[in-house]
Design a binder for these strands. Structure first.
Lengths: 171, 171
DNA sequence: ACCTGAACACCGTTCAAGT
DNA sequence: ACCTGAACACCGTTCAAGT
């Protein structure tokens, strides 16, 4: 008896051993000892299956992020954790293009935004900063083919405290 | 009588009208009034065909970049030009993951690095900054699904002049 | 409800053959 | 040299059928 999460986990294993192109419905089914058609009971299409992978990979990143007590440190944890995930599985980078927004992504973002807002940022600003940092990491990994140069992330993280100060000039 | 560039251009047209998934060897061949096999005379594989698309799309960006006379303005031109290209053809963003480094990309980068070095940066620094800015734009487009928020690019471009000053403290 | 088997309409690519 | 036609080994997915 299969669950959707088992199917996604099997897809991750397939991609780990044969690349994302080797992650076919038939290969995933084989790994589960099941017929390809059985997958369609738990997943609408191959595209949906692939889109569900990112959130599953972010479980530990989310755990680390919600443990932080300041906005910038949560942001840093998200950036470095995501970079670590993408370095461990470079094939997954492209799947973050159209991820199914899942519980892990949402929890990490919500916690980080909450902290930044408590520190004086607007919700819009906080959202933009997360987006910018995540975009930097993904873009960096995508263009660097698996290596990670933290130049861009460092610049962004260094700039944000200043922006925060200037967005609440008096107190 | 076909040329490789014609094949790449036809592939761009296919992707424009049917998305990158509709850009099959058969569809490209049809558009050129030719058999799928004819394409293999000019292109080693479908992957190579797709990898050649980015450089062709960057022709005008390269023209604008080499016209600049300061490193940061060349960098800005690359960032905004690339963003424009990716907004016009969102399907192409993912192809920048493994681009075939072509003449346009190389000319734009070389000009920009030359300017930054003449202004006092090291070649390594200049290279890292270009990479960071390009990564930001691509990551932003990839995660924003076609819209472009310049927050990250603005932060990076604002930070670079300061870095440049500090890397040559005396004169 | 959950899974299977057979089949359909596609792919990218090879290989021998044409001119 | 350049292109074609037929064929191969795959795909994702549908549909009817089993339990």
């Amino acid at each position: 008896m299969l669950s959707a999460e088992q199917v996604v986990a099997a897809a991750i294993q397939c991609a780990d051993s044969d690349g994302v192109d080797g992650c076919t419905m038939r290969a995933v089914a084989d790994r589960l000892g099941v017929t390809p058609m059985a997958l369609y009971r738990h997943v609408r299409s191959k595209d949906e299956l692939l889109a569900r992978i990112p959130d599953l990979l972010l479980f530990e990143v989310m755990e680390a992020a919600v443990r932080q007590r300041s906005g910038v440190s949560a942001l840093r944890e998200i950036a470095l954790g995501l970079a670590k995930v993408l370095m461990a599985r470079p094939w997954s980078t492209r799947l973050f293009e159209q991820p199914e927004p899942g519980p892990n992504m949402q929890a990490a973002a919500a916690h980080c935004i909450g902290l930044l807002v408590a520190e004086g940022a607007s919700a819009d600003e906080a959202f933009q900063w997360i987006r910018a940092v995540v975009a930097q990491v993904i873009g960096e990994m995508l263009t660097a083919h698996g290596r990670f140069d933290s130049t861009g992330v460092d610049l962004l993280l260094a700039a944000i405290p200043d922006l925060m100060r200037s967005s609440r000039p008096t107190r």
